[in-house]
Computed example of a mutant assay.
Amino acid sequence: MTTQHTAIEWTDRTWNPVTGCTKVSPGCDNCYAETIARRFAGAKAFPNGFDVTLHEDRVDQPYRWKKLARVFVNSMSDLFHQDVPDLFITRIFDVMEANPQHTFQVLTKRHARMRSFVQQREALKREYAAKFDDCPTEAMRNSPAAKWARARAANPPANIWLGVSVENQKWADIRIPALLETPAAVRFLSCEPLLGPIDLFAGDHSTHERDFDGTDDYICLDCSTSDRHIPWRVIDRTNLGIDWVIVGGESGHGARAVHPDWVRSLRNQTVAAGVPFFFKQWGEWGPAPFIVRVCDPKVGWQGTEEELVAAKADSEARGATHVHTGHSQKKDGERSYWLHEIGHKPWSLERVGLPDGMAAIRRWGKKRAGRELDGRTWDEFPQAVSA
C-alpha cells in the first residue's frame, strides 16, 4: 500500500506518504482502508495499524516513477487530517508541483483545512512573485526566477486535482461550498459510498413546477414515478464549479444499499451541466429484474409444465429472486435506504408492480453487480491534464 498500481477504476496508482485516519461522517463507517490496516497491523506498510502515521521514506517516490500516471494521494488516509503537520502537507504539495508529468488526485473529508491550506499556499506564491516587481533592476525583474515565480502564481498547478467526499445531501451542502472556495485546476466530487440523494444545485437556483419543454435546460431531481408532483430546476451550466463527479455504491461486509435513482439523478445533473461523470460501481447491491414476463397475466401459461419450470428457473438465474425494495428514510438529518425483501416470486409480481419510490435491488456482490448504468459504462474524465 506504499505506492502501487491499483484496481480503483478512476486512477492508475496510489501514493501513501500518510496512513491511518479517524471517522468524521457516515461515509467512513465501513472504511476499506481501516479494514486493510487492521488486518496488516504491525507490517511495514502499517506499523501503527490505522493510527495516523507519517512515512518519510515515501515522500520522494514520485521522482522515481517513469510511467506517466494519475495518482490517488493517500488512498489509505486523509492528507488534511488534523494529526498531519502543515509542513508535511507542504512537502507533499511541493513534490506534486515538481512532478507535472503526473496528475495527482487529492481527496479529503477535511474540507475546511484543505481550503485554508491551499488558499494560504496560493497567497504566498502571489506575495513571492510580487517581490520581483520591486527589484531595483530590470534584469532582476525579468530574470528566469521572476518569470518562474509569476507563472507559478498565475494559476493553481494543472496537475493537482482537489476533491471532497460527499455521501449525501447533508455533507454535500457542507463540503461542496468549501471546495468551491479552494483554488484548484480541477475540482471533483467523490460520491462514494452514495448513501442518499444529492442535489448538486441545492439552494443556488429557483424551483419551477413541471414545465419540461423537451430541452436539457431542465432536469428531474426526483427520478421516481411519473404521476408524482416532481420539482424541476433550471441549471446554470456556468456556475457549478465542479469539474468531475465520481459516483459509487458501497462494497464489502455490511455494505449499505444505494437507490438506483440516486445514481441516475447525479448522472442526469452532470450530463445537463456538461460535467464529466464517472460511475465506479454499484457495490454489493445493484438493480435486479423485478417484472419477469413468464406468461401473459390475462391468458396464463400456454406451454408445457416442463417449459414453465425452465422459464421460471431462467428468470431466477437472471436475478429475479431475493429481490429487495425500499424507501429512503431520514434519520438525524441524513438519508439512508431502508430495505425489505419481497415475499413473492417475480412471475406473480408482474401483476402487482412496485409502489411509488421503490426500486428492486439485489445483493449480487461487487463483481456481479458491475459498473453498468442503464446499459452502458460511464468513464468520463476532466479535460484538464498534467503538463
Rank of each mutant, 00 (worst) to 15 (best):
T3M: 14
H5W: 03
E9Q: 07
N16G: 10
V18D: 09
F40A: 05
G42K: 07
N48W: 05
L54W: 09
Y63G: 06
M76T: 02
M76N: 06
M76P: 03
S77L: 05
F80A: 06
E97H: 00
A98N: 12
T103D: 02
L107A: 03
H111L: 04
Q120R: 07
K125V: 00
A129C: 11
K131N: 10
K131G: 12
K131T: 14
D134R: 08
A146K: 07
A151P: 00
R152T: 03
R152V: 00
N159M: 05
G163T: 03
V164I: 05
S165W: 10
Q169V: 00
Q169N: 02
Q169H: 01
I176E: 06
V186A: 07
R187T: 05
L194W: 11
I198W: 01
F201Q: 08
A202F: 00
T215V: 04
T215P: 07
D217W: 03
L221I: 15
L221N: 13
H229P: 07
D236W: 02
I242F: 08
W244C: 13
V245W: 12
G248A: 13
P260A: 04
N268M: 15
T270W: 15
V271N: 13
P276Q: 12
F279E: 10
K280L: 14
W282S: 11
P297R: 11
V299N: 14
G326R: 11
E334P: 01
R335E: 11
S336T: 12
E341M: 12
E350Q: 15
V352T: 14
L354P: 06
M358R: 13
A359Q: 08
A369H: 02
G370V: 02
G370I: 01
T377V: 15
D379C: 08
E380W: 07
A384T: 10
